[in-house]
Design a protein around this nucleic acid. Structure first.
Ligand SMILES: NC(=O)c1ccc[n+]([C@@H]2O[C@H](COP(=O)([O-])OP(=O)(O)OC[C@H]3O[C@@H](n4cnc5c(N)ncnc54)[C@H](O)[C@@H]3O)[C@@H](O)[C@H]2O)c1
Ligand SMILES: NC(=O)c1ccc[n+]([C@@H]2O[C@H](COP(=O)([O-])OP(=O)(O)OC[C@H]3O[C@@H](n4cnc5c(N)ncnc54)[C@H](O)[C@@H]3O)[C@@H](O)[C@H]2O)c1
Lengths: 211, 211
DNA sequence: GCTACATTGTGCATGCGCGCGCAATCACAG
DNA sequence: CTGTGATTGCGCGCGCATGCACAATGTAGC
């Protein structure tokens, strides 16, 4: 199979999905690569090249059928089905994640929440009962979640990630500020706002006006 | 000046900072590129090449002095000083951000919080009084914040970003799921967990066991 | 049905990031 | 002070992502 597809390409596809979803909701039928690129800050050639890895979805002289392209991208990314996720760490961030309404419409369902703190365990948060981290392995045998979200302090993160991997999770969204280690068959993506800020200050550090 | 430094390099420096900070706290004096690379999943050559853009910080036969290298990286990234940030959108996520203890130790201070909802305005959240979005422009004349955090719904995000730019903000951390437009002299980084999830499902979609 | 026009799909060249490999350099032991 | 061992700094080539340019192809108008 065509597994020579660059990872950068895969990372751009969800952005296309996001923009196309907006266009579909606006009732737009077709869109061309130039308009789409303008919205996203991507060159039209880039978009066409990216899509050409997977097939020929456009019509010359018109552009891309919004609905059709959206379906194709869903198929490619594997987001036609529903995905089950478990959350570990029901603290401040964990609660915001549980309450976030942005996952469900995209087919990502949180089916389990775990914490080590006995004060949190047993509590109901957004219709989900928080379970003890100790029962994660056995709970996972029923839940069969393929994705894990890690929102525990840095000190516990690697340990929690190991547990998730052991329980069969194949992809992890990690909010803890560590560089975690996972087996080659497990995907992991980190979200760290501090890293984002620290790389931006490099570019603006000369632009005056300290307080 | 040496402004030919690739952005990917700048994006890696904060990761080095994070790892070195841990080593320093552990009392380590020196570290070599191999050990550092092992921790971070980066090749030793990559690390040495990255650092060589900015100077010669290592000693042959020994490695890098942890404290010294950390200071150099702080200097390079512009994180020796304190940076002031304003937050717009004090909802679920905004409150988690305000309560997050990870910004202050790295020199990032939230000095203002704004919302449009009259129920939130006037409220004190983590020692900060939430102000109306209407007074953002005049408040900014006193606060002089260089960074902005956007945690409002997608529909309001571009408008809020325009206001921040107008008020002199030079870098924006955007949590809203949109591709925002900013002038060339303003940096912006997006944080979107859904995009991260959607790119990971591509790789694990065949690996069995649907619910 | 035919012509004019718009836009895709892609071969190809350019440029850039990555990592190899080695000489230069430093620490340390004897 | 000299030799040994280790690790950096960096020149260089390779590979890959990016974007140009054009032929292929479909649309719409007449
Ligand atoms: N709050 C934010 O906005 C924010 C933003 C980015 C990253 N983060 C990161 O997310 C993580 C959580 O942040 P937070 O603000 O929610 O902290 P928090 O202290 O409020 O929550 C952490 C939760 O994890 C639980 N926990 C600790 N060890 C555990 C273990 N071994 N197993 C299961 N649960 C465990 C704690 O009981 C607590 O409920 C931290 O690593 C933080 O750096 C937070
Ligand atoms: N909650 C999460 O974990 C999470 C994660 C990632 C991204 N996001 C994104 O972050 C944003 C906020 O999410 P949330 O869950 O906190 O939503 P929320 O509805 O709880 O909070 C949004 C807040 O923004 C305020 N607001 C709306 N328009 C405004 C305007 N023009 N000016 C100032 N304030 C305004 C609202 O009054 C509200 O308080 C959304 O774009 C969401 O997609 C949230």
């Amino acid at each position: 199979m065509a597994l020579e597809i660059p990872e950068v390409v895969i990372d751009r596809l969800p952005i296309y999905v996001r923009a196309l979803t907006v266009l579909e909701r606006q009732g737009r039928d077709v869109v061309n690569s130039q308009e789409l690129g303008g919205k996203l800050g991507v060159t039209p050639a880039q978009i066409r090249k990216d899509l050409s890895y997977f097939g020929r979805f456009g019509k010359q002289g018109r552009g891309y059928n919004v609905k059709r392209l959206l379906e194709e991208l869903h198929q490619i990314l594997g987001i036609t089905r529903e995905w089950s996720m478990v959350l570990v760490g029901v603290g401040q961030l964990g609660r915001a994640i549980l309450g976030y309404g942005g996952f469900a419409p995209q087919g990502f369902r949180i089916v389990g929440a775990f914490d080590v703190d006995s004060a949190a365990v047993g509590e109901r948060v957004d219709g989900l009962e928080v379970k003890s981290i100790d029962v994660l392995p056995e709970e996972m045998r029923q839940l069969r979640a393929q994705l894990g979200i890690v929102a525990v302090p840095a000190a516990s993160a690697q340990q929690v990630i190991d547990m998730l991997v052991e329980s069969g999770v194949k992809a992890i969204l990690n909010y803890a500020p560590i560089a975690a280690h996972v087996p080659p068959d497990v995907r992991i993506k980190d979200i760290d706002p501090v890293l984002a800020l620290q790389s931006m200050t490099f570019y603006i550090k000369e632009s005056g006006a300290a307080p």
